Amino acid sequence: MLNGSVVVGEGGTLRVESPGGAELLGVGRFATGRYGVSMAREDGSGVAVEVGGNSVDAGQMVRLYPRGGYPSKPIVMDDGYADGYLGRPFVPIPLATGVDVDSSTERTTHIALMHVQHRVLSTSINVYAPPGTTIRVHLSLNGPNGFEDIGEPIVAVGGTSGQEISNTQRIKVERGHGERWRLLVRAARTAGTGTGTVYPFGLWGVHTANPSEA
């Protein structure tokens, strides 16, 4: 076919096989009468990507399987019953412990070993400053030339009644994929005599939102 359309209708199926007979692509009707798309690796190790499938009760799910294929558990899939939601992988909901800040000497309040998987770091950090006190927090990332500050500093100014700041940022990570570096949350009391608190709700590696983040 060099021009025009190929139509497989009336409940038919298009099947593409490797020279050894392994199915690489199946489009159309499954054994249960459902319709979908199934793609496999040429080594015959099983289904790699499936849209829909034989299941009659899980909707037209999109599933990505590890090497070994179906019926291994999928490593990525949408939710079979709650449309618009992720099924796998499970995503942790982090809970952070607050750390007090009561000195003008900067200290590390939280530390993480970062395996670089994404180009962008999404951060969510709360900082509390009591009345008459200012607390400054920033992130510091290790690298070939030592630690360097990343993102914008977070400054909570207590004023007369105290202040709590909820700060979120998207920070470009200037490190190679797969590299491992230490990431620090650093804090200090820069004014006053009160005791502040810093607690990160979470740090996530996320995909880029636009070309400027690449």
Rank of each mutant, 00 (worst) to 15 (best):
E50C: 02
G194Q: 06
V99E: 08
T97V: 12
D100V: 13
N126F: 02
V91F: 05
G59H: 08
A48R: 08
V76E: 06
Y70Q: 06
R180P: 15
T108P: 05
R189I: 03
S5R: 15
H118M: 04
M39T: 05
G26S: 10
G192M: 09
G162S: 02
K172P: 12
E10A: 01
G69D: 03
G158T: 13
M77S: 09
R186P: 06
W204C: 08
V116M: 06
G192V: 03
V56A: 07
I150C: 11
V37Q: 08
V56K: 05
S103N: 14
G4P: 07
I125Q: 07
E42F: 01
G26P: 14
G36D: 04
L2P: 10
S55P: 01
A112H: 15
V91K: 08
V51A: 10
F30W: 01
G162D: 04
S38Q: 10
V155W: 03
S18N: 00
P144A: 15
G205F: 02
T134K: 12
G20I: 00
K172R: 06
G159Q: 07
R15H: 06
N145A: 14
N167A: 13
I165Q: 05
G98F: 00
V51T: 04
L86Y: 03
Q117Y: 04
P211A: 13
G12C: 02
K172T: 12
P19W: 01
V99K: 07
G143K: 07
V206D: 07
A58T: 12
T134A: 13
R119I: 03
L139V: 08
A22L: 02
D83M: 06
R189N: 08
P144I: 15
S5K: 15
A129F: 00
G68L: 15
G20V: 01
I135R: 07
G158L: 03
M114F: 01
N3C: 07
D79I: 01
E174M: 13
T97C: 15
L86E: 08
G178R: 10
L64W: 04
T160Y: 02
A82H: 07
I93P: 15
G11T: 03
G132K: 09
S166F: 01
V101L: 08
S45F: 03
I125D: 06
D100M: 12
E42R: 08
E174N: 12
S124P: 10
R182K: 14
R119D: 10
V7C: 11
A40G: 07
V101F: 03
M61N: 12
R41D: 11
H115R: 11
G12W: 00
N3D: 14
M114C: 02
K172E: 13
G44S: 01
G146M: 10
L139D: 09
G132M: 05
G68Y: 02
R175V: 00
H207N: 14
T134Q: 14
A48N: 14
T32I: 05
V37Y: 01
D83T: 04
D78M: 00
I111M: 13
A40P: 04
R107C: 02
G151S: 09
I75S: 15
S103C: 05
A187R: 14
N3K: 15
P94F: 04
L121I: 03
E17N: 11
T197N: 11
F30P: 00
G21Q: 08
V16M: 03
V56H: 06
Y35H: 12
L64V: 01
P74M: 01
S104P: 11
A48D: 09
Q60V: 01
